[in-house]
């Protein structure tokens, strides 16, 4: 699914390029070894994103992270984790094709996000994120900057989510 970038009503909605993505599950005892193999820190504070070696890891749950990297990095991530698998058993599942990535940014972005997310957005600072619900759709939400959010949404839910975003953008543009 692709769509054209649109700026109106103080927000820009655009599609982001593909990237390598993995779901990583690892227990406390093995976490440091897997983090070392990947070349980044894995925090167990839910909602916090760490980065290193050109990769990012967002902690979604006490033993769950979503890893992302450049599109060509998937094989290297798989190999790095496979290298420590015997000593540090874990689960690594590639989900690169599962989602599309949407960025919403601009001065009115909080108003746009608040129409879909029931969370208190001020509790999510830049560099933090969460798995949550956007207008009934499960999403992984990341606040990249104060005025820029990224939504990772399963492909089949994307038409609904985009319909919502563009509809609200029209409302914002018309001054509602």
């Amino acid at each position: 699914m692709t769509f054209d970038k649109k700026t109106a009503g103080g927000v820009t909605i655009e599609e982001l390029p593909a990237e390598a993505r993995f779901s990583l599950r690892v227990r406390d005892g093995e976490r440091a070894a897997v983090a070392g193999a990947l070349g980044l820190e894995l925090t167990d504070t839910v909602g916090v994103m760490t980065s290193g070696s050109g990769r990012k890891a967002l902690c979604l749950g006490p033993d769950e992270w979503v890893l992302s990297g450049a599109p060509g990095d998937a094989a290297a991530i798989t190999a790095a984790c496979a290298g420590v698998y015997d000593a540090a058993p874990h689960s690594l599942v590639e989900i690169s094709e599962r989602e599309i990535f949407i960025r919403a940014s601009g001065p009115a972005v909080e108003a746009l996000m608040a129409t879909g997310v029931a969370r208190d957005l001020s509790r999510i600072g830049p560099g933090q994120g969460a798995r949550t619900v956007f207008d009934g759709t499960p999403v992984v939400l990341v606040r990249e900057k104060t005025d820029s959010f990224r939504l990772n949404v399963w492909r089949s839910f994307a038409p609904h989510l985009l319909g919502h975003l563009f509809h609200v953008q029209k409302e914002l543009a018309s001054g509602l």
Partner: peptide
């Protein structure tokens, strides 16, 4: 909507989650 505190996330969050 109810607000529920998740002891794992350490946040008080909307019931829909």
């Amino acid at each position: 909507m109810l607000l529920i505190h998740c002891p794992y996330c350490g946040e008080t969050l909307p019931e829909t989650e």
